[in-house]
């Protein structure tokens, strides 16, 4: 059973030889090949090289195209700032939709139009060519509130929920169309799984999540399913109050950050939901010891039960000691679900 077969079997509820291993690495992966992170974000060949290197070195079961949250927004025309050694970031004080009326004129960019989205799709094609039969290939899109925040400015969007709820719904409807087009091209290029990051969802409470966010996340997940795709949902931050909603979207994988207890997610999610995570990536994985990491992985596994994939709560930090990451990986390599 190779890595790709293992993950796909686990997702399908079939027997597997050991726990699948799918930690998020971006800057850590880039560091493995000594490249600049700017190049990792802007040149798919660098990203692919780094992802394959880290996956092979540590025995990950997958590779992914995630690099920063700004691919779609940049192609829409949002001002972004590039750094040599950090992720591309949105420039909020010049947000594309600072003036709400701009939304009515905003066109959805062509994902194959030579921009940053296209670069991500090219990464998937190259992954498929180089390791597609061996490793699971994961693409990436932003969720409704994350992308809405990228386009509108996160601080402004937070007050829009009170000031102009109709605009928020129009904005999210635009985002769904944008992300479905992006996801479709990623699936066509060969993505086995679409990662969906909806970080800002953890900033709003259950009331706004249920009224504004969940219905659009559901549209996105259903749309990807209709294309024959599968979804891994990741929401950074404290999602404790929205676990039930996250666990009822029908995602193949719900990937939890460290602030949300896995045992609570297990109680609240739909039966059989695969959970991924969620040790603290800084205090345990980066600052801890291999023994601490092993103990934390075992604790996560106990709380999640057999429908579990090994990973950290969020991205593996760039300067994580390799022996700590190796301890996380060995837990997966040595344990059955």
């Amino acid at each position: 059973m190779n890595s790709r077969e293992r993950v796909l079997a686990h997702l399908a509820g079939k027997p597997v030889d050991r726990l699948p291993l799918m930690p998020i690495t971006m800057m850590f992966a880039c560091q493995q090949i000594g490249a600049r992170y700017r190049d990792y974000c802007t040149d798919y060949r660098v990203l692919v090289e780094a992802q394959i290197r880290v996956a092979e070195t540590f025995g990950f079961d997958y590779v992914n195209t995630m690099s920063d949250p700004a691919r779609e927004a940049a192609d829409c025309g949002a001002p972004v700032e590039f750094f040599d050694h950090q992720p591309v970031a949105l420039v909020e004080d010049r947000a594309l939709l600072a003036d709400k009326s701009t939304l009515a004129r905003l066109k959805i960019p062509d994902p194959l139009g030579g921009g940053r989205m296209h670069n991500g799709i090219q990464a998937i094609s190259l992954f498929k060519e180089r390791v597609g039969s061996e490793k699971l290939v994961e693409g990436w899109i932003e969720g409704p509130i994350a992308e809405g925040a990228d386009l509108r400015g996160i601080n402004t969007l937070m007050t829009d929920f009170f000031d102009d709820p109709a605009f928020v719904k129009d904005l999210f409807a635009f985002v769904i169309e944008l992300e479905l087009r992006f996801a479709r091209e990623q699936i066509r290029a060969g993505a086995d799984l679409i990662g969906m990051g909806d970080a800002a969802a953890s900033l709003v409470g259950p009331h706004f999540y249920e009224e504004f966010v969940w219905p659009y996340e559901k549209q996105l997940v259903d749309g990807i399913h209709a294309m024959g795709g599968r979804v891994r949902l990741h929401i950074c931050g404290n999602t404790r109050r929205i676990l039930k909603g996250m666990g009822s979207l029908g995602c193949a994988v719900v990937d939890l950050d460290s602030l949300a207890p896995l045992h609570e997610a297990r109680q609240q999610a739909a039966p059989g939901q695969i959970l991924l995570g969620n040790m603290n990536p800084v205090t345990v994985l980066r600052n801890g010891t291999p023994d601490l990491v092993t103990a934390a992985a075992a604790q996560c596994h106990r709380e999640a039960g057999p429908r579990f994939i090994v990973g950290a709560g969020c991205e593996v930090p760039r300067d994580t000691p390799p022996e700590n990451l190796r301890a996380l990986c060995e837990y997966a390599h040595q344990h059955a679900p």
Binding site: N155, M158, T159, F161, F162, L203, V204, G205, F208, R240, R241
Partner: peptide
Amino acid sequence: ANEFFVPELLI
């Protein structure tokens, strides 16, 4: 106490 979230705090 998780009764207010970021939108409530900002307004």
